[in-house]
Design a protein around this nucleic acid. Sequence first.
RNA 1: GUGAGUGUAGCUCAGCUGGUUAGAGUGCCUGACUGUGGCUCAGGAUGUCGAGGGUUCGAACCCCUUCACUCACCCCA
Length: 417
Amino acid sequence: MKYRKLKGVQDILPPDISVWQFIEEKAGNIFRSYGYREIRLPIMESTDVFTRSIGETSDIVEKEMYTFQDKGNRSITLRPEGTAPFVRAYVENHLYNEPAPQKYYYMGPMFRYERPQANRYRQFYQIGAEAMGIDDPKLDAEIISMLSSILEAIGLKELNFEITSIGCKECRPDYIKALKDFLEDKLIDLCSDCGRRFKTNPLRVLDCKVPGCVKARKGSPPMVDYLCKDCGDHFEQLNNNLKKLNVQHTINPSLVRGLDYYTKTAFEVSSENLGSQSAVAAGGRYDGMVKEFGGPATPGIGFAIGMERIIPLINDSLKTTDGPELLICPLGEEAAEESLIIAEQLRAKGHWVEVNYDNTSIRSQLRKANRIGAKNVIVLGDDELENRKVALKNMTDKTEQIVALASDELLKILKTD
RNA sequence: GUGAGUGUAGCUCAGCUGGUUAGAGUGCCUGACUGUGGCUCAGGAUGUCGAGGGUUCGAACCCCUUCACUCACCCCA
């Protein structure tokens, strides 16, 4: 084989496409019922769109971005996530001038240079939503409820909704200090990764799976205890609203976000039925980001669903392999030409009609009809051409009906199927 | 970037402590059935044994290198 696909990308073939379309359709319908409108953005941006917002020292920026120089020596990056480009577009197109909340959704590929793994790819697809201009926790509750509706509509079960608040510019530093104070004298018990995390991103120590670290951080102060008045109230109201909306969730104070721009609400949905990469969707509030992008101070909240994370959870029965409504099997050259004409007439009426191009035995043509899942078949030979009548055979119940060899006669039969 | 596992037919995989001509199942094609499918039966096609090097009288099998895939760590949807 001369060429192979790049590491971490995948070819999505027709049997799987029906699953993708199912998800996209369900999600789109629910988005629109909540007033979210589709937005389509470029898959590449100026590199600094990401470095500033995601955080210079985050793993994504440090080692996972597909970045290259274009012919004009500009640094370009294939988007590793959807929110930063969205905020760029939001500001650039002055979308904040529309009445708040402004609500958008998108579906498309993201790119991260990571080692591929089960349910993790270098090119992966996200379905995302962003709601701008409102900082009321009712909106937080509503968007989480919408996410829940989408996942439910797709038929996912055994999901865990976890939420927390990671505070804001005011209260988070206090908490980080408190956490570091707590961990300081336990540093020897932590794994080497956590030793590093202690310096770069102490919050990360909270979700380390190494048993020694789990033990060492026992009794560590929870973030929610350190929230300022504003963040604390926000979080409390969010919880109340979620209860009223009947969204089952748990509070996980050690939930950590990988991106720097998040404030207050952070949430994640995971599945017990995936491998190690169990997060199917995640999101949070980003109240400072629009201003950082040069727009007016505007709160925002959003989430993204990982397509590749939900697809393995979907029932395989959605993988359909449809066949044509009619396969025309000609015997001989004259019949073959006549077949083309009939097929064209039926297609013009919107029917899926195939013509068999192999001039082989009727047996082998019917075998083929069976294999491609044709619903009906007509055999077109010398007799049929002469009498202008054909037997239209239903492949499922084996019945045959003699009809005139004319498109509208055939049409009548096809329609009743 | 780190660690482990796996590469044999289109697909799933056998192939003993190295032994001569590399197999099975499934799928594919054809026929039995002169113009009627699925079942059955018979026949047929398809492999640089991932690649390169080495050891050996002899390598799919042992050794080295390399590539690819998979899973996990890191991190994340």
